[in-house]
Amino acid sequence: MSDDTSTATLSRKDFQSDQEIRWCPGCGDYSILAAVQLLLPDLGVKPENLVFVSGIGCAARFPYYMNVYGLHGIHGRAPAIATGVALARPDLDVWVIGGDGDMFSIGGNHLIHALRRNVNLTILMFNNQIYGLTKGQYSPTSEVGKVTKSSPFGSLDTPFNPISVTLGAEATFVARTHDLDRKHMVETFRRAHDHHGAAFVEVYQNCNVFNDGAFGAITNKEHRAEMLIELHDGEPIRFGADAELGVALNRFGECEIVTVADVGVDRLLVHDEHRGDPTLAFALSRLADRPTMPTPIGVFRDVARPTYEGEVQRQLVGAADRQGPGDLEALVGSGATWTVD
């Protein structure tokens, strides 16, 4: 194998590994994997410069199936491990793959800190609202009342809204897509990858064995027009088969669904993903409590803030400027020294 790879001739196949894929037949993870492998040849990144970091869960098997560098960690810790990779080698292209259990239960803390620091990571969170690998227990995104083997009388826990949580964690890029729309996934992942800093994408993913159809009410082809609200920067937010519905702000600053014919186009909220203040993005994230109501997809927020690696490098340069290029002897001698009389 050569030491260098040209990116010009890469195809989807170059990113596929020879490992037998061990996801259940019909799992939404297959289409997400395909979308990523379709996208990668377009990005102009050498396979050896790509690192996929994962924790534990069905989604966390993802690096096995990619013919790029991979790090399989432990449950919840992938954002922390990925931060270490990105800090030690800012030139590498680091992706984090995990599910709702991995990233919002045990790894919630690591996720929010990676986001607030704005580490240059592309984070894909496969949300199936269930624990799949351990065969069906409720997750932090499962709905209240969810009956599972570990919640036989129904879950009492209020679920997280991942978009709200990540906006609250000072994320600079937040988006949502779903596993039945490859084109939308590819474009959303591309946007996330192009973002400088921590990019978080929630992917609604069907677990056809333990939580089948959790998103069917909004993602099935026959419902999409009425139930998915595609966000487009700079455009009034409209949806419906004939774009007859829209989103407007009420007097409390909350988003509500309106009929365009009733309120007029001028009252519709114009999506602005680059607003520094996350309030409007947050209001949009509250439009749907559950994936049974009209739900926004696409990019909620995309703002520029210095990346953590960039700031670390800036401090290193600053240190070198102040004290000259460091060497050990200078460091050892930098404290109190004296000569012996």
Partner: peptide, 10 residues
């Protein structure tokens, strides 16, 4: 937990 995770990555 995060410290050892970051070190793992490095």
């Amino acid at each position: 937990l995060e410290a050892v995770g970051m070190t793992w990555g490095a």
